[in-house]
């Protein structure tokens, strides 16, 4: 017969054993820990957009399309510029004619079925431009939904698509909350901004950053504390798009307004 004392002892032993995770029994090798600490990622590419400086010239979109071989007249683009016109009676009109490849040369705002809307100068409460591109999220939903491992994140944080591996199911196009993915009209596979991966690896900046005359777009390494982009992100008031989605976007904006979605 079991005594109360042995029952309590054994019950405590079993309870203790079940809450103890297996990992707690692992013996750490100090050399491996040191290697993990030192050989961790040294580069994390991030983007900084200053919406105050953007004038909507669209040179970034033109340069991106040519640099990355996106058919020039196809209605798809890896990056685009949006115009926001907020009127004094509280309406917000948004457009991006042809992804703003040829810039904004008219005050008429394309409102699809409502036609071209002209807003009088004195009715404008505020108006500005917002460049958009892939946010290269730290938690990329587009990568999570890929059923074949065609889209992935590199060690330096850029999300790429393997054109040979993509089966064109379109889950990632639907999964991206920022709408940056589309099908490439020539290769018929998912396509997205690569932060000009080929240029970054040659020590250059992205084509859109080099094309911007006003410094509205900047690219930098978040893990380098001396990088001018890192300094702005860590010391100034920056915001990201759709933070509530938990995607941890890595394109930071200066001067974002609440109308921007």
């Amino acid at each position: 017969m079991i005594t109360r004392r042995t029952f309590c002892k054994q019950a405590l032993l079993v309870a203790g054993g079940t809450v103890l995770p297996l990992a707690a029994l692992e013996l750490f090798d100090p050399r491996r820990l040191l290697a993990e600490k030192e050989e961790g990622a040294k580069v994390r590419w991030v983007f900084l957009v200053d919406t105050h400086k953007c004038v909507g010239c669209g040179f970034c979109v033109k340069a991106c399309k040519i640099e990355n071989e996106i058919p020039y007249d196809a209605h798809v683009s890896r990056t685009w510029v949006e115009r926001y016109v907020v009127t004094k009676d509280g309406r917000t009109l948004i457009d991006s004619p042809g992804a703003a490849r040829d810039g904004f040369t008219s005050s008429k705002i394309d409102q699809n079925s409502a036609g071209m809307v002209e807003v009088k100068d004195e009715e404008i409460a505020k108006a500005f431009f917002v460049p958009k591109l892939c946010n290269q999220c730290d938690n990329p939903p587009c990568v999570q939904v890929c059923p074949v491992g065609a889209t992935y994140q590199t060690a330096d944080g850029v999300v790429l698509v393997d054109r040979k591996w993509c089966i064109g199911c379109g889950y990632c196009v639907m999964g991206c909350p920022y709408g940056v993915r589309f099908f490439h009209p020539v290769y018929n596979v998912a396509e997205k901004c690569t932060f000009c991966y080929h240029r970054l690896h040659k020590g250059m900046k992205t084509a859109c950053v080099d094309a911007c005359p006003f410094g509205a777009r900047q690219v930098g390494n978040l893990l380098d504390p001396d990088d001018p982009v890192t300094k702005v992100i860590t010391s100034e008031r920056v915001s990201v798009l759709k933070e509530e989605y938990g995607t941890k976007p890595q394109v930071f904006y200066l001067g974002l307004s609440m109308e921007v979605k």
Binding site: V143, A207, D210
Partner: peptide, 28 residues
């Protein structure tokens, strides 16, 4: 599975080199 782990790093490693090999058109 590569650097970014099972959830984000599952890919063909040589594809990174293919993207790095894209021709630079805008030379500044």
């Amino acid at each position: 599975v590569h650097e970014r782990g099972y959830m984000y790093g599952w890919h063909r490693k040589s594809n990174e080199k293919e993207w790095e090999a894209v021709r630079v058109k805008y030379r500044t």
